[in-house]
């Protein structure tokens, strides 16, 4: 079995050639169409992505009643916004959790890489890396410090491990001094990292 994993001296070129050969053979044999893989990839540029999550968070910031509905029944509140595909693959059952003065939330998947695709798109590399998956549950405060998020030791951190059907995402706290911003301007401040709980949303630079 070990021989299967022997790597070519040029690891990347070998993988690139192998995946291209595999895709070519699968097209030739009728398992895939030549437009199939590109259809998947374009979904994550136009339909599913953190641009959806950012708009949901901005709505929750400007409308406290919406935020309550979002926390109580996340899919139903997201459906109000009428974005396409919001109960699609890896978003069939999503739940939002909100950061506050007393609680900070962090999402993780210690067994694999579960992630709420419709609202956040695809996970960044570090989220799938064994180091984050191992340390995020035992020492989240320390991990957050490495991310540049100094959570006081006495502040509760809730870590949400996605091990069954729910895909979690975080509603970060609205930064101070953003009262003059409209919903679209607020959405532009929200990063994927903030919706995973590894970043705060900084106040916009003074004009």
């Amino acid at each position: 079995m070990a021989a299967l994993f022997d790597y070519d001296e040029n690891r990347e070129a070998a993988s690139a050639a192998k995946v291209r050969a595999l895709e070519a053979l699968l097209i030739k044999k009728g398992v895939l169409g030549s437009d199939s893989v590109d259809t998947v990839l374009s979904h994550f540029e136009t339909v599913a992505g953190p641009f959806n999550g950012a708009r949901i968070v901005a709505r929750a910031w400007v409308d406290p009643a919406y935020k309550r509905r979002l926390l109580e029944d996340t899919p139903k509140a997201i459906a109000e916004l009428q974005f396409p595909g919001m109960t699609g693959a890896e978003g069939e059952h999503m739940k939002a959790v909100a950061n506050s003065e007393s609680v900070h939330n962090l999402i993780i998947c210690t067994l694999c890489s579960c992630y709420p695709w419709p609202v956040l798109g695809l996970p960044p590399y570090w989220y799938k890396d064994p180091v984050f998956r191992s340390r995020g549950v035992r020492e989240p405060h320390a991990v957050l410090r490495e991310f540049g998020v100094p959570i006081p030791a006495e502040k509760e951190v809730r870590v949400w491990d996605s091990s069954a059907q729910i895909r979690w995402f975080v509603i970060p706290e609205r930064p101070a001094n953003t009262g003059q911003l409209n919903e679209a301007q607020l959405a532009a401040l929200v990063t994927p990292e903030a919706m995973m709980g590894v970043a705060l949303v900084p106040a916009p630079p003074a004009v």
Partner: peptide
């Protein structure tokens, strides 16, 4: 472990 840390699992 760290104090004030709660893990939620489904």
């Amino acid at each position: 472990s760290e104090p004030h840390t709660v893990i939620y699992a489904d």
